[in-house]
Design a protein around this nucleic acid. Structure first.
Lengths: 244, 244
DNA sequence: ATAGTTATTCTCATAATGAGAATGTTGTGG
DNA sequence: CCACAACATTCTCATTATGAGAATAACTAT
């Protein structure tokens, strides 16, 4: 196999230009619904279509920095934002301009302010996950994988706490699970579970000022605990699905 | 913030060259120990050091194809190899030659043949995970993340079956878990668990030719079932660890 | 006050796990 | 050929985790 061995030694500088971008799937909860940050493209290709915020990495910038910058450009970097790498995409034709490899990031954040459009975007907005237009490039796929990652991460990490305020009630936390997973959870069992997992939440000794708008007792306030992983995990209710 | 908005619109073609490589963390089990495929670098930088197999992507090639090609160049592409994307790394100084963004892949395979060195490698070999030299570039970190991913994936997917032959005994499967996790498992409980998870394995109706070399009954043979996920998962024994 | 809401705690049945042991088969060494 | 050790497989029993429903009590609005 001289041929393949020769090609393996190919000179990298002889390659056509490859550009690397980061794209961010930023999720937050607003008005009880899961939202993703989108920008309306102002330039070709796909001008006028909505897309994930993102852009080219800079020469002196590491990947996570680039992701944080892109997010900050639209939202003003909020405190307590969790960012993690999602996946990379590099199919030859995914961007018509040139060969682009995109590294995607997933961000969870508590109620963020309304975004403002960056320079290359016509508009930027938080959009409900369940009412989305078709996105530019392969961003539908990236968003889909980000959502699945987010849903899975709620199971075995305490990241749900990054969607709520510094202190929160068990019911608010349950609301995060319910809106991200899209299923109702048993209030009593959820309560028992959250309090039984070591390091998930810790009590503050305080309660809400008053009951809910429609009544009910004051709820105790908690803050995030120091666990990085939930043991045992808080699993999604089993879907019926057959094998496959 | 005109400044940041201006920079966000930066022309990508004005960027210094970025090269994209794929690196593969290929794992297999040989003689009861977990091994990773490494190549000894024949060229600068890091000539003489061991590294993960990898190389530059080609212009017409998608990322997963590039990973499969790199793996095949060293091992001759074996059947039943599972490959999945791991993560990407792009810190500005990680390769002294130029800005390189590396997309890493994780591969699981049953007993693969001895590798042969590719054109740019002085040597290639399966090396025991527990007796490794310090690797070139940031490959120690990539390998570490690959190992953790592999250990986690055994918990909730049937991927352990990709480390064994087409048909296998429950004890062989248990051996995979024990060597990847590095802990002994209770034979009886493991047996019960594997057979109780729907779609994990299916019986072939056959047994091994004879008992083990030191005695014991013939073991039943199984093949991988059609489940993609294990429900409920087969969790690692809880480590004692305090919170954190 | 009264009814409707909701946080929190309980109870009870069932599922899943960890540990240890029993049962029966098979290879090895007398 | 026989006793024994090794090992696959099955069981038992205690403990833990989960799902469902209900009880208790603290609040708001009427």
């Amino acid at each position: 196999m001289d041929d393949s061995e020769f090609l393996a030694g190919y000179d990298p500088r002889a390659f056509p230009a490859v550009a690397v971008t980061v794209d961010v799937v930023a999720l937050t909860i607003r008005e009880g619904a899961l939202h993703v940050l989108l920008v309306e493209r102002g330039e070709q290709p796909h001008a006028g279509r909505w897309a994930l915020p993102g852009g080219f990495i800079r020469p002196d910038e590491d990947l996570p920095e680039a992701a944080a910058r892109e997010l900050a450009e639209e939202t003003g970097l909020a405190p307590r934002v969790h960012i993690e790498q999602l996946a990379s995409y590099g199919a030859p034709g995914r961007d018509p301009r040139m060969r682009i490899v995109s590294v995607s990031y997933l961000a969870f954040a508590p109620r963020l302010p309304d975004p403002r459009a960056g320079s290359d975007a016509a508009d930027a907005a938080w959009r409900r996950i369940d009412r989305l237009p078709e996105l530019a490039f392969d961003h539908d796929r990236i968003l889909g994988e980000g959502l699945e990652r987010a849903r899975a991460k709620l199971e075995y990490t305490p990241l749900a706490t990054t969607f709520v305020d510094e202190t929160f009630t068990i019911t608010e936390l349950r609301g995060v699970y319910e809106t991200v997973w899209g299923v109702p959870l048993h209030a009593g069992n959820f309560h028992r579970k959250v309090l039984s997992v070591p390091g998930f939440v810790e009590g503050t000794g305080q309660t809400t000022e008053g009951g809910g708008t429609r009544g009910g007792p004051r709820a105790r306030l908690y803050r995030a605990g120091d666990a990085r992983l939930l043991h045992p995990a808080l699993l999604r209710p089993a879907r019926e699905e057959a094998a496959g």
